[in-house]
């Protein structure tokens, strides 16, 4: 074992320079996924068979191809697509690539939230003559979204751990910095260890936080019986 502490302390400030890029990319692609996820969810709800079929198929395609391949495609191949192709910076490519990939999963989270709101809530909204938009905004989403918060938090952590993929197209996050440092000094051990430590230090507390949030939501749900409300009494 030839671990060298001086290399560790030398590499640390260099690798940490990439931290804000990693974090910025995480949040940017997460935001992208949250918004795009909404789009999928609502496209799927439009009562039009061919459209539904198309959307389902596209989502399945995105989910079944590796994010790394998608990233490479967006960065290297997209500029060459005639007509609609364009060159994107590594950072933007990563936001779009990781964001679109995870938007298909996040869309499922939204869907489960929306489906957890009982049919009775839609009917009561109708009986009170709400518009469709008011029904979504005042009745459905305020009930559908809170229970999805822990799941959405989980996806934030998962995406944080996926973001290093972007180093393959040259986004200068912590992994990229560590690789650069390692190549310069012909030593990867300390630099990559720093990367591992940084990921652990950030994602572990986040995971604990999400678990706490989940427990809190569960308690709230037991108390409010939101889920039971519409099932009513079995007769």
């Amino acid at each position: 074992m030839n671990w060298k502490w001086d290399m560790f302390f030398d590499a640390f400030p260099f690798v940490v320079q990439g931290l804000w890029i990693t974090i910025a990319l995480t949040f940017a692609s997460y935001l992208f996924a949250l918004l795009f996820g909404f789009m999928w969810t609502f496209l799927k709800r439009i009562p039009n068979k061919p459209l539904n079929w198309l959307v389902t198929w596209v989502m399945e395609f995105i989910r079944s191809t590796p994010p790394l391949v998608q990233l490479f495609f967006i960065f290297y191949a997209w500029p060459m697509v005639p007509g609609i192709g364009m060159t994107l910076s590594p950072f933007t490519s990563a936001i779009v690539g990781i964001g679109i990939h995870y938007s298909t999963y996040i869309s499922e989270v939204y869907r489960s939230g929306i489906e957890s709101v009982g049919k009775g809530q839609w009917e009561a909204s109708r009986a009170l003559n709400f518009t469709r938009w008011q029904t979504w905004r005042k009745v459905i989403l305020p009930q559908a979204l809170p229970p999805t918060i822990p799941m959405l938090g989980n996806y934030l952590i998962i995406m944080f751990k996926e973001v290093p993929l972007a180093s393959t197209i040259g986004v200068t996050g912590i992994l990229h910095m560590a690789n650069t440092y390692g190549a310069h000094h012909f030593r990867y051990l300390e630099a990559l260890t720093i990367v591992a430590i940084l990921f652990l230090v950030l994602s572990y507390p986040a995971a604990v936080l999400v678990r706490k949030l989940e427990e809190k939501m569960n308690r709230r749900f037991d108390k409010n019986e939101i889920l039971k409300e519409d099932k009513g009494v079995v007769m």
Binding site: E123, A124, R126, V139, P142, N224, E229, G232, V233
Partner: peptide
């Protein structure tokens, strides 16, 4: 038209939030 009509449901369907 349905503004003139109101309804009470078997399972209440109150807004729990």
């Amino acid at each position: 038209i349905r503004g003139d009509i109101g309804m009470v449901f078997q399972h209440f369907n109150l807004f729990p939030h």
